[in-house]
């Protein structure tokens, strides 16, 4: 799983390629978002947040759904691999979800005339998703047997993932309880360079998710291996100590004639 040449690294050809894509892609996105795309007739420059806010939101959903899938497969297969996938994806999902809340709030001020609305279904369900992810990750830090910890986390992981359709559909189900717009992508309300730049943002967010996911998964896997090696090491140490003590006792018996 880890880099064979240097086990201290989590990089590989694939991750380096993704890193290169991001190095080239992010400045390209900035170029399109800030200089080449037109400002919106009404929203003016605030529209440029679209190119980061929407991709972050979509891949926050992807990350949480991956956590849900990983959790289901862990409970089914009892495989550490799936547990590590769920854990890694939840961490990235939390970062993306946090960025969605921050960029959304920054966008909301000039657009809606408010930073935050407590009665807004989309905003509050997204905040709940963020808090649930935080809870999921905190739960993973609670000291417990690794299997028990993974089992508990998987149950919470599935609950967190169930929240995704609610967050995503909230703008359709409760249209008159949110300031948030409905999807521009699925309704075909974007055109020309704006649409192209949004797709570029989506591709880069996807690459960024995969890149972070691969690294975080490998770190998680190494942590699991260290935990396992640690347990085996402790056992071997005890066996070695026990063997040494027995040998010393036999020497004592032979040399000093002490019989117990």
């Amino acid at each position: 799983m880890q880099n064979v040449r240097n086990p201290n690294l989590t990089s590989s050809k694939g991750t380096r390629f993704m890193g290169f894509l991001l190095l080239v892609g992010v400045p390209t996105l900035v170029l399109f978002a800030f200089f080449l795309t037109p400002e919106d007739d009404n929203m003016e420059d605030a529209v440029r947040l679209l190119y980061i806010h929407v991709p972050m939101a979509i891949f926050a959903y992807v990350a949480v759904i991956t956590t849900g899938i990983g959790s289901i497969f862990y409970l089914w297969k009892k495989s550490r691999w799936w547990d590590t996938v769920a854990h890694a994806s939840a961490e990235i999902g939390l970062i993306f979800c946090g960025l969605v809340l921050v960029t959304g709030s920054i966008w909301g001020r000039p657009t809606w005339n408010t930073w935050w609305e407590w009665g807004d279904v989309r905003l509050v369900t997204t905040l709940v998703l963020f808090l649930m992810l935080l809870g999921y990750l905190a739960l993973r830090q609670v000291p417990a047997n690794p299997d028990l910890r993974a089992k508990r986390a998987s149950v919470v992981g599935i609950i967190v993932a169930i929240n995704i359709p609610i967050v995503n559909r909230s703008v359709e189900w409760w249209e008159n309880s949110t300031l948030h717009q409905q999807s521009s992508l699925t309704d075909g309300k974007l055109e020309d360079l704006t649409l192209f730049t949004l797709f570029l943002g989506l591709i880069l967010a996807g690459v960024c998710y995969l890149w972070l996911m691969t690294h975080r998964f490998r770190v998680g896997w190494l942590q699991t291996e260290i935990e396992n090696e640690g347990a085996i090491g402790v056992l071997q140490e005890r066996i070695a100590e026990g063997t040494a003590s027995s040998t010393e006792t036999i020497i004592k018996e032979d040399g000093e004639g002490e019989v117990r």
Partner: peptide, 14 residues
């Protein structure tokens, strides 16, 4: 208090 509920239309013929 006026809040703007911007729609999802980013085309020119809004």
């Amino acid at each position: 208090r006026i809040l703007v509920k911007h729609d999802n239309d980013y085309r020119e013929d809004r």
